[in-house]
């Protein structure tokens, strides 16, 4: 099983990287973009781990290391 984890900045946390990307997109002529938030994508190989257990493990891994709860939230998909 593979876990696809998305780590994103919480609402209200300033994202200068997203703002810079937005600025450059506008320079390139993509005027219809209203905002950009940059996050992280993490893939975990959890071969052989049952889905229920995988969910618990992913929550623990995100709480301990993969996301910083002060500024980030996360979501994930299993496939």
């Amino acid at each position: 099983m593979k876990a696809k984890i998305y780590v994103t900045l919480k609402k209200g946390v300033h994202d200068p990287q997203g703002e810079a990307v937005l600025g450059t997109l506008k320079h390139l002529g993509f005027k219809d973009v209203k905002g950009v938030r940059v996050g992280k994508y993490i893939e975990l190989n959890l071969d052989g781990v049952p889905a229920d257990k995988a969910r618990h493990r992913i929550d623990a891994m995100c709480a301990k290391l993969l996301a910083n709860p002060v500024i980030e939230s996360y979501s994930y998909e299993l496939d």
């Binding site: 946390v13 300033h14 200068p16 990287q17 810079a20």
Partner: peptide
């Protein structure tokens, strides 16, 4: 408490 993030001007 808190954390350190990217400088405002990058």
């Amino acid at each position: 408490p808190g954390t350190l993030i990217r400088n405002k001007n990058l």
